[in-house]
Amino acid sequence: MNTHLKSPSLTHIALHVQNLEECIAFYQSYCNMRVIHQRKNEHDTIVWLAESGREAEMIFVLMSGGPFRQSSDQGYGHLGFAVASRKQVDEVADRAKQDNCLIWPPKEEPYPVGYYCGVVDPNGNYVEFSYGQPLGPGAKPLKS
């Protein structure tokens, strides 16, 4: 049966976090996201964050009441943010080093990975900042 359904679109990522206020401050400060919606239910506080201009495309939902995420030393699961230049990757890494949350110093890898560093958020989630991937600022077309 052919239903001609459109493909789904990824619209949000939602995570339970232990310290909601610290995580909101982290994503506001490091990722330039802003709170666009906040509500409370009987168990949780739910906050929607978005990049300016992308509120209708992709949001990040943080929910209170979650456990601290214990990342494995070998784990590479992360959220990825593209930045506008290699210099900006270096600036994020320098700041994260001062804030004691740098987990991957800046590194160049073959295309399509590009230049990146990694930071850990207050809840233990890894966040990558990259330049030169086929996504976001500095994007280069993906080669097959």
Results as ranks from 00 to 15, higher is better:
residue 98 Q to N: 11
residue 62 L to Y: 07
residue 81 F to R: 03
residue 97 K to P: 00
residue 95 R to N: 05
residue 81 F to I: 06
residue 86 R to F: 04
residue 83 V to M: 12
residue 74 Q to T: 08
residue 71 S to H: 08
residue 69 R to Q: 11
residue 76 Y to V: 13
residue 77 G to Q: 12
residue 93 A to P: 04
residue 103 I to F: 02
residue 83 V to D: 11
residue 75 G to P: 00
residue 99 D to M: 12
residue 100 N to E: 07
residue 89 V to A: 04
residue 96 A to I: 00
residue 79 L to C: 01
residue 70 Q to M: 06
residue 76 Y to C: 10
residue 96 A to S: 02
residue 74 Q to W: 06
residue 77 G to L: 09
residue 73 D to I: 03
residue 95 R to T: 08
residue 87 K to D: 11
residue 97 K to G: 00
residue 75 G to D: 15
residue 84 A to C: 04
residue 85 S to H: 08
residue 80 G to L: 04
residue 79 L to K: 01
residue 70 Q to T: 10
residue 60 F to Y: 14
residue 105 P to A: 15
residue 82 A to I: 02
residue 62 L to Q: 08
residue 90 D to N: 14
residue 92 V to E: 00
residue 98 Q to F: 01
residue 102 L to M: 06
residue 79 L to Y: 05
residue 105 P to T: 11
residue 79 L to D: 02
residue 82 A to D: 06
residue 64 S to M: 13
residue 80 G to R: 00
residue 100 N to D: 14
residue 98 Q to I: 07
residue 97 K to D: 01
residue 102 L to C: 03
residue 98 Q to L: 12
residue 82 A to H: 10
residue 91 E to T: 07
residue 78 H to Y: 10
residue 93 A to T: 04
residue 100 N to L: 14
residue 101 C to T: 05
residue 94 D to A: 15
residue 105 P to I: 10
residue 61 V to S: 12
residue 71 S to T: 08
residue 84 A to E: 15
residue 75 G to L: 03
residue 96 A to D: 01
residue 83 V to G: 05
residue 96 A to M: 03
residue 93 A to E: 04
residue 78 H to D: 06
residue 103 I to P: 05
residue 85 S to F: 06
residue 74 Q to D: 11
residue 72 S to N: 12
residue 76 Y to A: 08
residue 74 Q to P: 00
residue 60 F to C: 02
residue 98 Q to R: 14
residue 66 G to M: 10
residue 80 G to A: 15
residue 93 A to D: 09
residue 94 D to Q: 14
residue 81 F to M: 03
residue 68 F to W: 10
residue 95 R to W: 13
residue 82 A to R: 07
residue 69 R to W: 13
residue 76 Y to K: 13
residue 105 P to D: 15
residue 99 D to F: 08
residue 93 A to R: 03
residue 86 R to H: 05
residue 60 F to R: 01
residue 72 S to E: 14
residue 75 G to S: 15
residue 64 S to H: 09
residue 104 W to K: 05
residue 65 G to R: 09
residue 104 W to E: 09
residue 87 K to S: 09
residue 102 L to I: 00
residue 99 D to S: 11
residue 65 G to L: 15
residue 93 A to L: 04
residue 68 F to R: 11
residue 82 A to G: 13
residue 104 W to S: 05
residue 101 C to R: 10
residue 71 S to W: 01
residue 85 S to A: 10
residue 98 Q to W: 00
residue 77 G to A: 14
residue 66 G to K: 04
